[in-house]
């Protein structure tokens, strides 16, 4: 009796917790609201199964608890019942899978009009790079990384000269414009994750990974690293600010190009050399 009641109450309690607890996802700030929808669909289907099975168990425990003079039924199998259950499950699973695959297809297909932003991760922080006027990100190589050239752009690549380098933890993106994040890391695995955007992808040294999204509301969001990257993992935070066109332009105007940064760094180096000589 107590056992049956407990299972019953645990089921009711779980459902109540689901509906009335304060813990739920953050308000979505990108076009990936349909990820939330697939989660909700999954909740309805799996929730129904959970409740049905738990109630069934509670009922059995209550109804068929041991009596000395009773015999259990002898029934090794019931083919019809088993095949029905199998088909029902298969259909339920297909209903979950199909919308999931549709959304995944959208997730991995970047729209043609998306503009590019490079996210640059290191232990433990973020930098960003914009393609500049030519809309092409210059090529990079780990070997080129040094104090003068912290992003490791290949000096000979003309496309890199006008790239805007954002050597800060903060990135601005445009509202309602699809953006493709090209993800690069110079050391270990990282993952560029903004809870409100829903999207996520690991950054892997040696290759450039990507994902895309369209920010849908103006705001200031926290960036988290979502792939364990060493002792400082928990402190690897940044900011993304979604702007309207006007504010964005203001911010963009403040960023310097690779060419200028290189010149500046070289000058500083020379100054230091001069100082040393003295």
């Amino acid at each position: 009796m107590i056992v049956a009641l407990s299972i019953f109450l645990i089921t009711i309690g779980s459902v109540a917790f689901h509906f009335w607890s304060p813990w739920w996802w953050t308000e979505v700030a990108s076009n990936w609201g349909n990820m939330d929808d697939t989660i909700l669909l999954t909740f309805w289907i799996t929730g129904a199964v959970f409740i049905a099975i738990c109630f069934f168990v509670a009922y059995c425990v209550w109804k068929y608890s041991y009596k000395k003079d009773r015999r259990a039924e002898y029934k090794p199998e019931d083919k019809k019942l088993e095949s029905r259950l199998t088909w029902a499950t298969a259909i339920g699973v297909a209903a979950l899978l199909a919308p999931g695959l549709v959304v995944w297809n959208q997730y991995v297909t970047v729209p043609k009009d998306a503009y590019k932003v490079e996210v640059f991760a290191y232990q433990w922080g973020w930098k960003y790079r914009l393609p500049g006027e030519d809309n092409i990100l210059g090529k990079t190589d780990i070997k080129y990384i040094n104090d003068e050239n912290p992003f490791g752009l290949i000096l000979e690549d003309p496309n890199g000269k006008d790239d805007l380098l954002v050597d800060a933890q903060e990135l601005h993106v445009l509202k309602d414009r699809p953006v493709k994040f090209e993800l690069r890391t110079i050391d270990v695995l990282h993952n560029f994750y903004v809870p409100q955007f829903r999207g996520k992808m690991d950054m892997v040294p040696g290759i450039v990974t990507y994902y895309w999204l369209t920010p849908t509301r103006v705001g200031d969001f926290e960036v988290l690293c979502a792939e364990y990257c060493g002792t400082g993992h928990y402190a690897m935070r940044g900011r993304v600010i979604v702007d309207e066109e006007k504010e964005y332009k203001k911010w963009e105007a403040k960023q310097i190009t690779f060419e200028k940064m290189l010149a500046k760094n070289r000058k500083n180096d020379n100054l230091q050399l001069v100082k040393k000589d003295k």
Partner: peptide
Amino acid sequence: NVTVDVPLSD
């Protein structure tokens, strides 16, 4: 389900 995994993984 790959799509649902994106926001929930990690």
